[in-house]
Computed example of a mutant assay.
Amino acid sequence: MSKKEILKMTVVWLKNLIILLAVPIFFTFVFGTVYSKTFVEQIPTVIVDQDNSSISRSIIKQFDESEGFKIVKYVDSENELKELIKRKKAYAGLVIPKDFQKNMKEMNAPKTLFIVDQTNLVIGNNAFAYGSEILNTLNAGVQMKVLEAKGMNLYSAKKTITSMSFVQRVIYDPQISYMKYLMFGIIGVMIQQTFLEVLAPMLIEDKKKLMNIKFKSKDGLKHLGKVIGRILFVSVCTIIQFAICFYIVGKYFNLPIRGIVLYDCILLLIFILNLIAVCFVFAAIFKEVLPCVQICLFLSVPAILTCGYVWPDFMMPKGLYNIVNMIWPLGSFINPLRNINMKGANFEAILPYVNMGLRYTAVWLPLGVGLYILRIALDKFLQNKKLNKAKAAEVSA
């Protein structure tokens, strides 16, 4: 092997190591930093106070003192408020109508209008949560004062207001954190993309070399050993990648890791087998590396959006979830990964996903390897046919 070939091979392996280890670690820090704030706070808010009463000022004061909102402007009309929201100068607005205090005292059930920009679900949902909490608390307090002003004693007023109460409890993620919701899926997608973008091109290049080698020959067996070695190399790097990324999000970004680590490892090993199968299928289909890499890059978005991670599987059309997960394996990895680490789920809870991943391997790994071998045989046949035709043309000439 010449120095030029050794240098070229060294560059390729360094590039693969960077893709498998450095890139995922870098982006784990990037995404962790982006989503590191637990709460969405200081949401820009506009106020329309058409009443200008002591009660309306009290309501505005509660919004102003809340960590969730930041009052950026006071305007005179609802249309002005909506225009500011449309121009992204604010994301929430409160309208207190004229004669609000008067109607409150007369028990006419006046209404405030709380407007939220829901084009961003994270901002919208948090704004609704903060606003509802403030307004419900104020509503009870104002009603008590009105009842007291009408001559009802404090105890009776409290009994009237609290005749029915409810308690809500958000478990596992009470902060409604975007980090905890997304990060397990992001780690899964990074594993998927780096694995495919390294191993599939390797197998395509090996396919070209195997075309010119007899499988049963010494060179053929030697090269098959190299193929297996490359698969093991990528798999080991992926396990290291997973361990480092999990350590980073747990240590530096407080992502909950409550489950038994062995369950995470089982899911990862099954997912690696799934991805090996996908790589063989892609290597059989694609003749060149570039289109293969392009399709691998494209697949991350539809994979995570259809696997039941972002949108719940029970809301999908009947049977679609199972079809998606028989075509693509991401869901059988990231869905139970989140359940294990956020809920501390036991093995029974993840067993359906383990079975799904094993079924995927049982179907797609033999199929992928078979297609890969068939493609090599077909390409070799076509190449020999072309060579024989060229030789025949030379002889006849």
Rank of each mutant, 00 (worst) to 15 (best):
F242R: 03
P329E: 04
A22W: 07
A303F: 15
E197L: 14
I123E: 07
I350V: 15
K150S: 06
L210T: 02
K158A: 13
F195T: 06
F298L: 14
P366V: 14
I240L: 13
L378N: 07
A90T: 07
C296V: 07
L17F: 10
K391N: 10
S66G: 08
I55A: 00
A392E: 14
K318C: 00
P317Y: 03
G331Q: 04
M356K: 14
C307R: 11
F29C: 14
I115M: 08
G185M: 02
K88C: 06
D379H: 01
F215T: 09
L297T: 00
I373R: 11
S58L: 12
V46N: 05
E78V: 00
L255H: 01
K287E: 11
V170A: 08
K318H: 07
L374P: 02
C279H: 07
L305A: 08
Y360G: 03
Y353W: 12
E394D: 14
N384D: 11
I186L: 10
A109Q: 14
K318M: 03
S217F: 02
V170C: 02
M9R: 15
K86Y: 09
N52L: 13
V198G: 04
D206Y: 15
G131Q: 07
S56C: 08
G93M: 04
L221R: 12
L374W: 15
L154V: 09
K111V: 03
N388S: 11
I244V: 14
